[in-house]
Amino acid sequence: MANTRDLKNRIESIKNTKQITNAMKMVAASKLRKSQDKIINARPYANYIDVMLRTLKMRNKSNLHQILNDKIENKKEILVIVTADRGLCGAFNALIIKEALHYLKDKSEVDLICIGKKGYDFFKKTEYKIIEKYLGLFNEMDFTSSKSIAWNMLDRFMNKEYGKINVLFNEFKSVIQNNIVIKQILPIIPNESDVVNGTDFIYEPDENTIVEELGRKYVDVELWRMLLESSAAEQGSRMTAMDNATENASDLIDHLTLQYNRVRQASITTEIIEIASGAEAIKQ
């Protein structure tokens, strides 16, 4: 049986681990709050751009701008994989990678853009071509950096280098539930949810310019929203993972404390027996 000192050391070290996991849980909770606030702020902006694009698409069915035209000729496509930069967040990264592999299985002309270190680390070892990687983005999330990624994607799309761009990311549902989705970001498919009023607008300078500029903004804000969703989902899963870890540590500490006491008592009992039997021996 282990001696008391070893057990004591183990209990101490598990207590330290518990403190760390608990702190990580708190940090994740506060970061989750921040991402959620940002999502709420981005929502109306995305909605209005969507409404404007939909109105434009309705009006002009025959001669659609490239950015809205979903009849794709170029078969080459990009899959943008959004993972986290760090681990310790449960199955978050593994699930996305699994889904990505599933998607790539029966496609031949797909190149990758990796956002997040975990996805990049995995896919750089595979035969898929990574055309762009963005690491360490989630530490300090701002709209400008998301915008530069969107611009890069838009350039490749507008140059007709690629015909389609999909984004694979983790949509935030709740702290315990995430939802992995693949969403097409280019060409743009505006949401068809609510009815557009038939107002005929006057456009300045002209319709095509407006469509293109609006489309660009749409991609900017959609990507931003996806990154925020992914970041919220990551923090959510980290929160649950760390909560479980903290709980496990508590269980382990209870168990070890019990064992420690048992060992301590056993050694006291042995000592008493030794003294008693020694005294017996002297008497005789």
């Binding site: 404007m52 107002t199 607008f201 006057i202 456009y203 300045e204 300078p205 407006i210 500029e213």
Partner: peptide, 19 residues
Amino acid sequence: PGVDGDFGVYEGHTPFITK
């Protein structure tokens, strides 16, 4: 400030989209 010049909007303006 629109791309093609500043413009004022009162209630009842014609439907209009610009940069």
